[in-house]
Structure formats: C-alpha cells, structure tokens
Design a binder for these strands. Structure first.
Length: 405
RNA sequence: GGUGAGUUACCCAAGUGGCCAACGGGGGCAGACUGUAAAUCUGCUGGCAUUUGCCUUCGGAGGUUCGAAUCCUCCACUCACCA
C-alpha cells in the first residue's frame, strides 16, 4: 500500500544515524496521521543566542529538522534568550552575563540567517523563551522547582561527575533543566530533538508536560554529538576544533581533509547525504584497497563545500588546495604587507601576524619552520634589506606576502 | 555557624625560603615520516632583548627576609565533614 510505504520511508529517514529515540511509537503515530490527514505536528529544538557562528556540529541537528519538515513537521526553533543568562551546566560554564534585548535579537538574527540555509523558513516558528519564562515569576518558579528533587537532579551525568570531583555546582544550574523542560510545556511540543548530551534536559520536558497536564508527552530524538577535528572532543568554537558553515570554501575543504580516516566515516554518517548503504560500500572498498582513503575524504570535503556554497566552489577549493599542497606552490590569495627595508625577520613575522611574539618567532626560526620564498631561514638575526617582494612562510600553512623597500 | 583541606602557567598537576620562568602529563606549535591525514619519534611551549641579560608570573592585598610560589596577617573563592 502506497501510504504505508510513505510512512516507512519517512521513518527510515528520520531514524537514520540517531543515537537514541524515546517513544518511537509516538513519532510513528504523528507521521501516520500526517500522511493520512495532512495534519502537522511540532518539533522543538533549542539554541542559545550566543551569537556564535554555526558549525557542522549544529548542522547534524538542523539536517534532522529539515528531514522532519519534509515529513510534516513545523519546527519550533527556540531561542533560549532567558536560559542563556544562566548557562547550561556543561562543567566549566560560569554564570553568564545577562544579555540585553538588543544583543539577543541581533544574535538571533545572525543565527536564523544561517539556520535558513538549511531549514525551510515557511515551516519554522522562531520563538523566544523569555516570553513565558519572564511571566512565570518567583511563585511560578518555586512551583516549578517543587516538581523535582535534588537526588534526581544529581543523577544528571554532568552534575554527578562534578559533585564527585568536588567541583562547584551553582544552584542556578539546577534551574536550567527545569526551565528548558518548561519550554516544552509552554510550546506543547510533540517531539523535541537535541544532542545526546541533552538527554537529561530533554526528558525533563516529558516530565513537566506530564506534571503540568499538557495532555501529551513529547517524544525525544537524540542525535550523536559530532566530534571536532581532533576526533575526541565535541565540536565547539571554544575548543577551536570546528568547521563553521560560513567559513570560506577553501577552509572547509582544508579542515575536512585534516581529519583522521576513522573520523571521516563518522562525518560521513552524520553529515553526508549519502545513504548508510552507500557509505558502508565505500568503507568496504577502502578496506579492500580499491579506493584510496584520501579520495574518499576529498569527496566528503567537496560535498560539504557544495552544501554551503555550490559545486563550482567545491571544485575550485579542491584545485586551489591541490595547487598549494600537492604541487607545493604558494596560495594565490595571501595577505600582503609592505615593510621598510632592513626590517628584522622576527619583526616582520609579528607584524604580518604570522607569529604572536618575537620570542615565538625566534623559536620557530631555530627549528627551521620559517621560510622566505621557500628557503629556510637559518639566522634569526636576518634583516630584510634587499628591496623586492617576498613570500614569508611559517610552518606548512601560514603565508604572507611582503613588499620590502 | 564550626572544623579541616585547597587556590601554581591554556588544562591537570609537582614544588613547602635561594639550584624556580617553576618537575611531569595533556593540549598547542614546529621538524621527520606521510595522503598538509591519523599513529609514531624528536624539539619547543611567559614577554622583551639580533644569543647566556632584563622584566612579569604561582588566588588578591600587605608584611617578615639579603632573598618568597614557599613563612606571617588580612581578604576573596572552592571543596569535605559536622550543625
């Protein structure tokens, strides 16, 4: 039966590469109803309005939301402007600064601009949780806190670890999951999706929907956390192990190629449009030696560039990359500087931003990491006194063009 | 409120009067090897000074001393146990 096939196809797309689903039957029911009657359901996903650029880690979630949109969902894109002032308990996070209204709106704007590169704006409602959380008031907040107890709160993995390690836990951090859960009450969400690290908070939504008598308990769909370029830690801006979706094609391409082969398969699974079967097949071919792992990685890098730009940009990024690194040529778009004749090499390096300090510059020269026009600099006392244009290089990837005289 | 322990560089963590810009590990950077991979090995990892010199750093502020990360006083913060 055709309808049954549509339902199954939708479910298979939705469950692809998920980490865990709680109450799958509910999701099935919602999709079935949509296919049969056209009635839509809501999927909530929360984001902090910290104003940072989106990276591939976010796209794992966003792509899943897109899949939901294609299968009957309206997305409740929750901007946690109120909760952002507390900070999700992630171990290190101190209580954050209260963001003023203007900053929040500005951040939300840069956020949604990027989000709509992936999501369909017509099927997305952008909502701010300050709307109902500010109205909650002290009595409302107290009522909210009575629905949970400390022992259960401490079950949260993060709290437990910190507690055992003798680290500080602020009382406000206990409030965070409650407020996030309350968002689900206010929005009457059918489904909420988030990373596996959000499990506790996501389940809180179910708990509170039950306590507050919303009449339904949201299903929860968790996506795996995308590891950053180091392959170990979560991709995040603060660890500087991320690929931003607004980065240049060149950078996206280069960063993708720098990941390990193991991590590549992970990225394929979570980020690629390829089906899991296709990916498994590629993996087999690499294992059998029929496909060079680097070729597979190049394909992934190009797919990612094409996703955020287009195929032409992807091709260009690959060519530029090959030119620089395979043929050992210099890139064609280096920052340019002009320097006075007689400039000391270490000063030249700091002034062009290739090195943070002259001490660091000296160390790198000693180690043979600095080159001028491809020639290793041997003497740290070298002065650039011959007029002309040179290419300064530190390590493999930092370049600058300088004009002397 | 009481008692005890603690706060060291990006992170963890040694150091309990001079040999301390401060052991070790992680991370980072660089070199070798490669596919600008990964893993591995090696070096470096406060700043300034065109080379053994100067300045700043061990929670904060004072003090003792020829000399302090180390001793004393006060303050701030964290944790544990008790209330």
């Amino acid at each position: 039966m055709q309808m049954q096939e549509r339902i199954e196809a939708a479910l298979s797309q939705i469950t692809r590469a998920t980490a865990e689903i709680i109450d799958l039957e509910r999701i099935e029911t919602l999709i079935k109803r949509y296919v049969e009657t056209g009635e839509r359901y809501t999927v909530k996903a929360g984001f902090d309005p910290t104003g940072s650029d989106l990276h591939l880690g976010h796209t794992v979630l966003l792509s899943k939301l897109r899949t939901f949109q294609q299968n009957g969902a309206r997305i409740q894109l929750l901007i946690g402007d109120f909760t952002a002032t507390i900070g999700d308990p992630t171990g290190k996070s101190e209580t954050r600064k209260v963001l003023d209204r203007e900053t929040v709106l500005a951040n939300a704007k840069t956020y949604t601009d990027q989000v709509f590169k992936i999501l369909d704006p017509d099927l997305t409602d952008v909502v701010f949780n300050s709307e109902w959380l500010e109205a909650l008031g002290a009595s409302g907040l107290v009522a909210l806190t009575t629905t949970y107890n400390v022992a259960r709160m401490l079950e949260r993995d993060d709290f437990e670890k910190r507690y055992k390690a003798g680290k500080s836990i602020s009382v406000s951090e206990f409030i965070y999951p409650l407020l996030q859960g309350y968002d689900s009450v206010a929005l009457k969400s059918d489904i909420e999706i988030g990373g596996t690290d959000q499990k506790f908070n996501l389940l809180m939504g179910r708990h509170l929907q039950r306590v507050y008598g919303v009449g339904k308990e949201q299903a929860v769909l968790m996506m795996p956390i995308l590891e950053g370029l180091d392959g170990v830690q979560k991709m995040s801006k603060s660890l500087d192990n991320y690929i931003g979706i607004t980065e240049s094609p060149k950078d996206i391409y280069a960063k993708t190629l720098s990941i390990s082969d193991d991590l590549m398969w992970r990225y394929y699974e979570l980020l690629s449009e390829k089906s899991l079967e296709e990916i498994a097949q590629m993996k087999d071919e690499v294992a059998a030696g029929r496909l060079h792992p680097k070729a597979a990685k190049e394909a992934l890098a190009m797919e990612l560039v094409a996703r955020f730009y287009d195929k032409a940009a992807a091709k260009e990024a690959k060519e530029a990359f090959d030119r620089v690194f395979k043929a050992k040529q210099t890139p064609d778009d280096m920052p340019e500087f002009s320097l006075e004749s007689g400039t000391w090499i270490c000063k030249a390096l700091t002034e062009t931003g290739l090195e943070p300090s002259t001490s660091q510059a000296r160390r790198d020269i000693k180690q043979g990491a600095v080159r001028i026009d491809g020639e290793k600099v041997q003497d740290e006392r070298l002065a650039l006194d011959k007029a002309g244009t040179y290419v300064l290089q530190v390590g493999k990837r930092k370049f600058a063009k300088v004009k002397v005289g």
